Simulated assay, not measured.
Amino acid sequence: MVQIGYTMMTEQAGPRDLVDHVVGAERAGFDFSVISDHYFPWLDSQGHAPYAWSVLGAAAQATTRIPLMTYVTCPTFRYHPAVVAQKAATMQLLSGGRFRLGLGSGENLNEHVIGAGWPSAHVRLEMFEEAVGIIRSLLAGDCVSHHGAHFDVENAKLWDLPDEPPPIGIAASGPRSCELAGRYGDLLVAVEPDSDLVKSFTAHGGEGKPRVGQLPVCYDTDRDAAVARAHDQFRWSVGGWEVNAELPGPGGFAGATRHIRSEDLTDTIPCGDDVQAVVEAVRGYVDAGFTEVALVQIGGEHQGPFLEWAESKLLPALRGL
């Protein structure tokens, strides 16, 4: 049976609200939760970007059951990999073993802020592979000194380690990242129901490992209002990650999506209160080979009604998958 998760979207709510939302998701019966890790929202209309790791620490104390996961953290620019390892170990301890570390090669939107430029995709993947190796060594308890092509680590050691290191998820969107995910990841992370990603992940060492997808939805009893909100806050999602990874800020996303129509979104984002539409969208992930799907409810102030609907109608229907 597919596991159904809840997404804390840091781009659309402040830190206290995000903690309240995940508490509500645990109460509603979601199987796990994930959180985005951004410095900017994609669009100004989303309006938020708190520090995900502080939110995670608070969420670990405010909840008791629901697993927590970054979706995803970039360990190469804003954060040095040695610091990411320390944060992940601490989160695993705070959550009592409920944390998974989702990692990805990043977006210019968030990483440009340190002024280090934004290299080509193949360089970013080289950096990412090196960073994952450093993180794994530190989480294994090693004392690490490393002088590589992109990172230096001098006599680093984590002093507070959990009994079991957090599983590492690797975000994939193409052949090279799928290869890295299969070789270095404990699970696959993706944002589209692409069976080729799952096949490539499996072929490179991912056999039997979890595959986690993500699906945006926009619940509202007024479908027209839901469609309008999805267009206002989530039209960036149709650009594809080859484009989205390169844009430097909300203004760039606004310009790149100015010709996107509301009807361009409704094929991929279930809008309204049709339970079966969400079930069929999740089924697409299941049929593609995903074992877990994290739902994103679009609109920060609309989480309460969504969670009530999910508890009473949506989650019972999704259990049939």
Rank of each mutant, 00 (worst) to 15 (best):
Q3D: 14
G5H: 02
M9N: 11
M9C: 05
H21N: 15
V22S: 09
V23C: 13
A25L: 04
E26I: 09
A28I: 11
G29M: 03
D44Q: 14
Q46T: 09
S54Q: 09
V55S: 05
A58G: 14
A60C: 01
M69N: 10
T70Q: 14
T73D: 10
P81M: 00
V84D: 04
L93I: 15
L94P: 04
G96R: 07
G106W: 02
E111I: 04
P119F: 03
A131D: 06
S137G: 02
C143L: 14
E164G: 00
P165D: 10
A171N: 08
A172T: 11
P175V: 14
L180H: 14
A181I: 15
R183G: 13
Y184P: 00
D196T: 13
D196N: 04
L197V: 00
S200R: 15
A203K: 09
G208L: 03
P210I: 05
D220N: 13
D220G: 12
D224L: 09
A230G: 10
W236M: 02
W236L: 02
V238T: 15
V243E: 13
A245S: 15
E246C: 06
G251C: 00
R261T: 05
R261F: 00
S262K: 04
E263P: 03
C271Q: 11
D273N: 14
V282I: 01
G289T: 02
T291H: 02
A294R: 01
Q297A: 03
E301A: 15
A310D: 07
R319I: 07
L321M: 07
